[in-house]
Amino acid sequence: MERKIEYTKLQLVFLVLLRFSIGWHLLYEGVAKLMNPQWSASGFLKESQWILSGFARWIVSDPQILNAVDFLNTWGLIAIGLGLIFGLFSRAAAISGASLLFVYYLNCPPLTGIEYIRPSDGNNLVVDKTLIEAIALCVLALFPTSRITGLDALIPDFKTRKRKGEVY
Protein backbone atom coordinates (compact mmCIF):
# COMPACT_ATOMS: atom_id res chain seq x y z
CA MET A 1 0.00 0.00 0.00
CA GLU A 2 0.92 3.62 -0.20
CA ARG A 3 3.23 5.28 2.22
CA LYS A 4 1.27 7.61 4.46
CA ILE A 5 2.36 11.24 4.11
CA GLU A 6 2.60 13.23 7.31
CA TYR A 7 1.77 16.94 7.08
CA THR A 8 2.10 19.71 9.59
CA LYS A 9 -1.23 21.33 10.44
CA LEU A 10 -0.46 24.40 8.34
CA GLN A 11 0.63 22.33 5.34
CA LEU A 12 -2.59 20.37 5.58
CA VAL A 13 -4.74 23.51 5.89
CA PHE A 14 -3.32 25.07 2.75
CA LEU A 15 -3.31 21.89 0.71
CA VAL A 16 -6.96 21.37 1.59
CA LEU A 17 -7.75 25.00 0.81
CA LEU A 18 -6.10 24.57 -2.59
CA ARG A 19 -8.16 21.43 -3.17
CA PHE A 20 -11.38 23.18 -2.17
CA SER A 21 -10.74 26.22 -4.33
CA ILE A 22 -9.84 24.32 -7.49
CA GLY A 23 -12.77 21.99 -6.85
CA TRP A 24 -15.07 24.96 -6.40
CA HIS A 25 -13.82 26.59 -9.59
CA LEU A 26 -14.18 23.49 -11.77
CA LEU A 27 -17.56 22.62 -10.26
CA TYR A 28 -18.90 26.07 -11.05
CA GLU A 29 -17.41 25.96 -14.58
CA GLY A 30 -19.39 22.76 -15.12
CA VAL A 31 -22.59 23.97 -13.44
CA ALA A 32 -22.51 27.27 -15.36
CA LYS A 33 -22.29 25.34 -18.63
CA LEU A 34 -25.12 23.09 -17.52
CA MET A 35 -27.32 26.05 -16.65
CA ASN A 36 -26.69 27.82 -19.95
CA PRO A 37 -28.45 25.81 -22.66
CA GLN A 38 -26.77 27.91 -25.33
CA TRP A 39 -23.28 27.07 -24.19
CA SER A 40 -21.12 25.06 -26.52
CA ALA A 41 -17.40 24.44 -26.73
CA SER A 42 -17.54 25.31 -30.43
CA GLY A 43 -16.58 28.97 -29.91
CA PHE A 44 -13.53 27.97 -27.88
CA LEU A 45 -12.58 25.16 -30.25
CA LYS A 46 -12.88 27.38 -33.33
CA GLU A 47 -10.16 29.52 -31.81
CA SER A 48 -7.85 26.56 -31.37
CA GLN A 49 -4.58 27.34 -33.10
CA TRP A 50 -1.73 25.21 -31.97
CA ILE A 51 -0.98 21.48 -32.14
CA LEU A 52 -4.56 20.52 -31.28
CA SER A 53 -6.21 22.71 -33.90
CA GLY A 54 -6.83 19.78 -36.28
CA PHE A 55 -8.45 17.83 -33.46
CA ALA A 56 -10.58 20.86 -32.53
CA ARG A 57 -11.73 21.34 -36.11
CA TRP A 58 -12.71 17.68 -36.30
CA ILE A 59 -14.89 18.07 -33.19
CA VAL A 60 -16.58 21.21 -34.50
CA SER A 61 -17.20 19.70 -37.95
CA ASP A 62 -19.72 17.17 -36.71
CA PRO A 63 -22.62 18.35 -34.51
CA GLN A 64 -22.92 14.90 -32.95
CA ILE A 65 -19.29 14.80 -31.87
CA LEU A 66 -19.58 18.39 -30.64
CA ASN A 67 -22.66 17.49 -28.58
CA ALA A 68 -20.85 14.53 -27.06
CA VAL A 69 -17.83 16.69 -26.23
CA ASP A 70 -20.05 19.36 -24.69
CA PHE A 71 -21.80 16.73 -22.58
CA LEU A 72 -18.59 15.06 -21.41
CA ASN A 73 -16.96 18.40 -20.71
CA THR A 74 -19.84 19.71 -18.61
CA TRP A 75 -20.34 16.55 -16.56
CA GLY A 76 -16.60 15.89 -16.42
CA LEU A 77 -16.03 19.27 -14.81
CA ILE A 78 -18.88 18.73 -12.36
CA ALA A 79 -17.61 15.27 -11.38
CA ILE A 80 -14.03 16.50 -10.96
CA GLY A 81 -15.20 19.51 -8.95
CA LEU A 82 -17.33 17.38 -6.64
CA GLY A 83 -14.52 14.83 -6.29
CA LEU A 84 -12.08 17.52 -5.17
CA ILE A 85 -14.48 19.23 -2.77
CA PHE A 86 -15.73 16.05 -1.12
CA GLY A 87 -12.36 14.37 -1.31
CA LEU A 88 -13.86 11.38 -3.04
CA PHE A 89 -11.61 9.57 -5.51
CA SER A 90 -9.65 12.72 -5.13
CA ARG A 91 -6.48 11.52 -6.81
CA ALA A 92 -8.37 10.35 -9.90
CA ALA A 93 -10.23 13.66 -9.92
CA ALA A 94 -7.00 15.65 -9.66
CA ILE A 95 -5.32 13.69 -12.45
CA SER A 96 -8.32 13.90 -14.80
CA GLY A 97 -8.76 17.58 -13.96
CA ALA A 98 -5.11 18.24 -14.75
CA SER A 99 -5.41 16.40 -18.06
CA LEU A 100 -8.57 18.27 -19.03
CA LEU A 101 -7.04 21.63 -18.16
CA PHE A 102 -3.90 20.70 -20.03
CA VAL A 103 -6.02 19.99 -23.14
CA TYR A 104 -7.63 23.43 -22.74
CA TYR A 105 -4.20 24.97 -22.44
CA LEU A 106 -2.85 23.17 -25.52
CA ASN A 107 -5.80 24.37 -27.59
CA CYS A 108 -5.14 28.03 -26.89
CA PRO A 109 -1.66 28.48 -25.41
CA PRO A 110 -0.50 32.11 -25.11
CA LEU A 111 2.58 31.67 -27.29
CA THR A 112 4.29 34.48 -29.13
CA GLY A 113 2.94 34.73 -32.66
CA ILE A 114 -0.43 33.13 -31.92
CA GLU A 115 -3.19 35.67 -31.61
CA TYR A 116 -6.71 35.10 -30.44
CA ILE A 117 -9.88 37.05 -31.08
CA ARG A 118 -11.32 36.00 -27.76
CA PRO A 119 -10.54 38.39 -24.95
CA SER A 120 -7.86 36.85 -22.73
CA ASP A 121 -7.90 36.68 -18.96
CA GLY A 122 -5.08 39.00 -17.92
CA ASN A 123 -1.65 39.21 -19.50
CA ASN A 124 -0.10 35.88 -20.30
CA LEU A 125 3.09 34.74 -21.95
CA VAL A 126 3.52 30.97 -22.39
CA VAL A 127 2.18 30.40 -18.89
CA ASP A 128 -1.46 31.16 -18.18
CA LYS A 129 -3.86 30.48 -15.32
CA THR A 130 -5.13 27.30 -16.94
CA LEU A 131 -1.62 25.86 -17.02
CA ILE A 132 -1.01 26.88 -13.42
CA GLU A 133 -4.27 25.28 -12.33
CA ALA A 134 -3.31 22.09 -14.20
CA ILE A 135 0.06 22.00 -12.44
CA ALA A 136 -1.56 22.73 -9.07
CA LEU A 137 -3.80 19.71 -9.63
CA CYS A 138 -0.69 17.58 -10.27
CA VAL A 139 0.68 18.81 -6.96
CA LEU A 140 -2.61 17.85 -5.27
CA ALA A 141 -2.38 14.39 -6.83
CA LEU A 142 1.11 13.98 -5.34
CA PHE A 143 0.20 15.42 -1.95
CA PRO A 144 -3.19 13.84 -1.28
CA THR A 145 -5.28 15.17 1.58
CA SER A 146 -8.55 13.42 0.92
CA ARG A 147 -7.68 10.50 3.20
CA ILE A 148 -7.27 12.90 6.06
CA THR A 149 -10.13 15.28 5.28
CA GLY A 150 -12.42 13.82 2.71
CA LEU A 151 -14.63 10.88 1.95
CA ASP A 152 -11.61 8.90 0.77
CA ALA A 153 -10.78 8.57 4.48
CA LEU A 154 -13.61 6.07 4.74
CA ILE A 155 -12.39 3.94 1.87
CA PRO A 156 -8.95 2.86 3.13
CA ASP A 157 -10.55 2.32 6.50
CA PHE A 158 -13.00 -0.02 4.86
CA LYS A 159 -10.17 -1.78 3.02
CA THR A 160 -8.07 -2.17 6.15
CA ARG A 161 -10.99 -3.61 8.04
CA LYS A 162 -11.63 -6.03 5.24
CA ARG A 163 -8.01 -7.12 5.32
CA LYS A 164 -8.21 -7.64 9.06
CA GLY A 165 -11.24 -9.78 8.53
CA GLU A 166 -13.62 -7.49 10.37
CA VAL A 167 -15.93 -7.13 7.45
CA TYR A 168 -17.41 -10.17 5.78
Partner: peptide
Protein backbone atom coordinates in the same frame (compact mmCIF):
# COMPACT_ATOMS: atom_id res chain seq x y z
CA UNK B 1 -13.94 6.31 13.98
CA UNK B 2 -15.89 9.37 14.99
CA UNK B 3 -12.88 11.57 14.33
CA UNK B 4 -12.28 9.97 10.94
CA UNK B 5 -15.94 10.44 10.13
CA UNK B 6 -15.85 14.09 11.13
CA UNK B 7 -12.72 14.74 9.09
CA UNK B 8 -14.16 12.86 6.16
CA UNK B 9 -17.15 15.14 6.19
CA UNK B 10 -15.14 18.32 6.66
CA UNK B 11 -15.97 19.35 3.11
CA UNK B 12 -19.71 19.44 3.77
CA UNK B 13 -19.68 23.11 4.85
CA UNK B 14 -17.79 23.96 1.65
CA UNK B 15 -20.40 22.14 -0.42
CA UNK B 16 -23.12 23.94 1.52
CA UNK B 17 -21.52 27.32 0.91
CA UNK B 18 -21.17 26.49 -2.78
CA UNK B 19 -24.86 25.60 -3.04
CA UNK B 20 -25.83 28.79 -1.24
CA UNK B 21 -23.69 30.96 -3.54
CA UNK B 22 -24.99 29.13 -6.60
CA UNK B 23 -28.62 29.71 -5.62
CA UNK B 24 -27.88 33.36 -4.86
CA UNK B 25 -26.19 33.82 -8.24
CA UNK B 26 -28.87 32.07 -10.26
Amino acid sequence: KRRTMLKALASLPVAGLFSYELLKKS
